[in-house]
Amino acid sequence: MSSVLYVCVRPERSAADAEHRSFRRGLGLGTLDRLDLLHASLETVEWEQYDGFVIGGSPFNVTDAQKGEHQHAVERDLERIAGRVLDGAAAALFTCYGIGVVTRLLGGRVHTEQPEQASATEVHLTGAGLEDRLFGPSAPSLRVFTAHKESARATPPGSVLLATNDACTVQAYRVGDRLYATQFHPEASPQDFADRMAVYRASGYFDPRDYARTERAILDASVDGDDLLARFPRLIGG
């Protein structure tokens, strides 16, 4: 069994498959086990046997006014993973939608006042980020892809801010030694992100009338999130 489990929370199969490939490449793993929470719960796999979890993004939002039972079930399972990591039994990297779930779990507030349209952005490491074993080697900043409608208003209780920028105050934080949450997508290459935005072109992450310009800007971007992601497996068991 692989020691890392990719947890998918995307309903769209093409986007889910591509994200799985992106994480496998970024982590530098030959194989990466996968669980699609829209189709199966944690109880369908021996999830407590894994030492690490990477949680992908989703068109869901923690702040959604109306949620179906599928979304409630997904959020409960993500909270269970976070709880196991907080107990010191594993390491995890929650991205995008996942940072909202963890923020709420910890008693923080998620708001919709700092959205970012689909684009490459530079995030700046804080003092704690510079000293962090996952983020530190990327000092003083890294360029990554982002696209979101909500974010943490501030770091939740018990967490440490690792990265920020002017557009979004909380770009990444750490809880304890091995729970990481990022608002951005470290796994996506320019082609990965362009393909993903084709799936979500009518989902409000950019003006669909500007699709060609948005796609061109994404494909021309240079990002280095893979460097950060490649360091994640070293946290497992550490």
Score class of each variant (00 low, 15 high):
residue 53 F to L: 08
residue 204 G to T: 00
residue 39 H to L: 15
residue 148 H to Y: 11
residue 231 R to F: 03
residue 157 P to G: 02
residue 93 L to M: 04
residue 152 A to K: 12
residue 91 A to G: 12
residue 102 V to H: 02
residue 73 A to E: 05
residue 59 P to S: 09
residue 135 F to R: 03
residue 234 R to E: 07
residue 222 S to P: 07
residue 43 E to I: 10
residue 135 F to N: 09
residue 198 A to M: 09
residue 126 T to W: 09
residue 121 T to R: 08
residue 203 S to E: 07
residue 84 R to Q: 10
residue 80 R to L: 14
residue 154 A to P: 14
residue 199 V to T: 09
residue 135 F to C: 03
residue 16 A to V: 11
residue 187 E to T: 05
residue 189 S to T: 12
residue 82 A to D: 03
residue 91 A to S: 06
residue 178 R to F: 07
residue 109 R to T: 03
residue 189 S to W: 05
residue 25 R to P: 02
residue 102 V to Q: 05
residue 6 Y to C: 07
residue 144 V to H: 00
residue 77 D to N: 14
residue 86 L to A: 08
residue 135 F to S: 06
residue 75 E to I: 07
residue 158 G to C: 02
residue 205 Y to C: 15
residue 227 D to E: 14
residue 122 E to A: 05
residue 198 A to W: 14
residue 237 G to K: 08
residue 128 A to M: 09
residue 70 H to M: 13
residue 23 F to T: 01
residue 59 P to R: 14
residue 81 I to L: 04
residue 7 V to L: 14
residue 122 E to M: 10
residue 176 G to T: 02
residue 182 T to P: 00
residue 76 R to K: 08
residue 171 Q to G: 12
residue 197 M to K: 01
residue 206 F to E: 00
residue 144 V to K: 00
residue 140 P to I: 07
residue 83 G to P: 13
residue 64 D to H: 09
residue 207 D to L: 02
residue 21 R to A: 13
residue 86 L to R: 10
residue 162 L to H: 14
residue 178 R to S: 01
residue 164 T to S: 15
residue 127 G to N: 12
residue 207 D to G: 01
residue 107 G to M: 11
residue 109 R to V: 15
residue 61 N to F: 11
residue 166 D to E: 15
residue 188 A to Q: 06
residue 209 R to S: 13
residue 116 E to T: 02
residue 122 E to W: 01
residue 63 T to E: 10
residue 104 R to Q: 10
residue 225 G to T: 04
residue 3 S to I: 15
residue 44 T to A: 15
residue 184 F to N: 00
residue 34 R to V: 01
residue 208 P to F: 02
residue 62 V to E: 07
residue 90 A to F: 00
residue 77 D to C: 14
residue 66 Q to L: 03
residue 47 W to G: 02
residue 119 S to A: 04
residue 83 G to I: 10
residue 124 H to K: 11
residue 93 L to I: 01
residue 181 A to L: 11
residue 155 T to M: 11
residue 198 A to D: 15
residue 189 S to M: 06
residue 187 E to W: 01
residue 17 D to Y: 15
residue 142 L to W: 05
residue 195 D to N: 12
residue 215 E to K: 08
residue 137 P to K: 04
residue 73 A to V: 14
residue 50 Y to I: 03
residue 220 D to E: 14
residue 130 L to C: 08
residue 14 S to T: 15
residue 233 P to S: 10
residue 13 R to N: 06
residue 112 T to G: 08
residue 171 Q to R: 06
residue 27 L to H: 01
residue 15 A to D: 15
residue 226 D to Q: 12
residue 35 L to F: 02
residue 172 A to S: 01
residue 99 I to E: 11
residue 186 P to G: 10
residue 69 E to T: 11
residue 199 V to D: 13
residue 7 V to C: 01
residue 220 D to W: 07
residue 132 D to G: 04
residue 30 G to N: 09
residue 169 T to A: 06
residue 20 H to F: 05
residue 136 G to P: 01
residue 135 F to L: 13
residue 21 R to G: 07
residue 159 S to Q: 08
residue 235 L to Y: 13
residue 195 D to L: 06
residue 161 L to F: 05
residue 44 T to K: 10
residue 2 S to I: 07
residue 170 V to Q: 03
residue 192 D to T: 12
residue 64 D to A: 12
residue 19 E to M: 12
residue 47 W to C: 09
residue 171 Q to C: 14
residue 46 E to I: 00
residue 50 Y to Q: 10
residue 38 L to Q: 08
residue 48 E to L: 06
residue 53 F to A: 10
residue 200 Y to G: 12
residue 72 H to T: 02
residue 62 V to M: 13
